[in-house]
Design a protein around this nucleic acid. Structure first.
Lengths: 226, 226
DNA sequence: CTTGTTATTATTGTCGACAATACTTGGTTT
DNA sequence: AAACCAAGTATTGTCGACAATAATAACAAG
């Protein structure tokens, strides 16, 4: 599926496969947020040994999707508003920097590819009901490309390897299909321009505003609901 | 020991203890960077089962200190100049943001405590040979306090929980006792001022410059050596 | 002599059982 | 009746052995 993470490599071992299944289950809420994880029960469900289940749990912990306490057990992380805002703060910092680095380090080919992707999104947006499509896959695709374009292993690992699973979880569980789609598209467009101009400073600033705008959009929504 | 990480909680299980031992061994180079890890051999060394060794290895992987490939094994990460610079880039982004958040979220008590710490560092610096002391423990203490002051769980986890082990590893292996000690002290002083003034924007900028200066210092050193 | 193939060895992944710790239930005491 | 203590139950941590995969060595063919 197109949504899949660029850092995930082919699942070869059975622990890998169980990890992926549980990843989807947690992201989509099949395994409820905040629920306790029973090792014997899950091991029976997936028809595997507890050892290999624990291996899978370790990977989930690496993504900050579950939390373990010694001699007590694992819990799926809770989805709180505060937690969501914390993630946005981290994203603003990291993706902003990733964008600056992308402006410095992206190859010409990568830039061309990204521009092509944007054009494709534009037509998709015009043709279809579009909004929801762009919001979901298109937005993630764009952010992934920028992050990978930074050519910074640490940045890529933190953002794509761990943080973005949490982002997807929040999007699923809070049912976010915000009306920012068209606005977000214009912002993406300007960011790519800055990268193509090799203007790292501007690229960082635009990306930070782009993410901060999303955060404020959430904050407003929350404020309205109350 | 004072250097220890604020996020590390008491090691209760044996896997925890082995993890800590290996952590120190890798950071200090007793277990060489880039070397392959033999599970049977290490299990015998620490006199534990392979299962609990693998548990420890999983935690090391979480800190990005080792890398695993399916059906092949684990290797200690390599310490390259490029890798070091990548870490500085991430720190500039994350600690800059942490500093901004600290200016917004730190309690008055925390600020007072941090000011006291700085004063203590100042006297220690004046009295002793100082330079090396301040460089090592004092610098880390300061950065830890700012990060914790952000009150952002994600930031704290990423920085204190994973990245700083790598930072310490690089400091050990590359033998860094740079002559920036006095300059760094002044920079710390100004950063605390900005936080006390609740000026998040300035605090972030100063922290970013502080870290960028360290990075450029390294870059210059490298350039000289060649 | 080099290259490709096969057999052997060693390492990693997985399993089920046991030990240690935490939770629960029932009883006792104030 | 409420709070504390104790025994029993369930869950997690640890262990040693087996199965599957990868690295190595020996051998054969070109």
């Amino acid at each position: 599926m197109a949504l899949d993470n660029p850092t995930t490599q082919a699942a070869v071992t059975t622990a890998d496969k169980v990890f992926e299944q549980m990843l989807h289950a947690i992201v989509e809420g099949t395994i409820k947020a905040g629920s306790k994880i029973s090792e014997p029960e899950l091991a029976k469900n997936y028809q595997i040994s507890r050892s290999t289940l624990r291996e899978a749990l370790n990977r989930l912990e690496k993504c900050h999707l579950i939390e373990r306490k010694a001699n007590v057990g694992s819990r799926v992380v809770e989805c709180s508003i505060a937690g969501l805002l914390e993630i946005y703060v981290v994203r603003e910092a990291l993706e902003g920097m990733a964008c600056r680095q992308a402006a410095m380090n992206m190859t010409e080919d990568e830039i061309i590819e990204m521009q092509a992707m944007l054009k494709q999104h534009a037509s998709a947006k015009a043709l279809r009901d579009g909004v929801s499509y762009y919001q979901e896959e298109g937005d993630l695709d764009f952010h992934y490309k920028v992050i990978l374009g930074s050519h910074n292993k640490q940045l890529i690992n933190i953002l794509c390897g761990q943080l973005y699973h949490l982002v997807r979880m929040y999007r699923c569980q809070f049912g976010m299909n915000s009306p920012r789609a068209t606005k977000a598209f214009d912002e993406h467009s300007r960011i790519i321009e800055a990268i193509a101009d090799r203007d790292g400073e501007l690229a960082e600033m635009l990306m930070r505003r782009h993410i901060a705008a999303s955060r404020k959009n959430i904050e407003n929504k929350i404020a309205q609901q109350q």
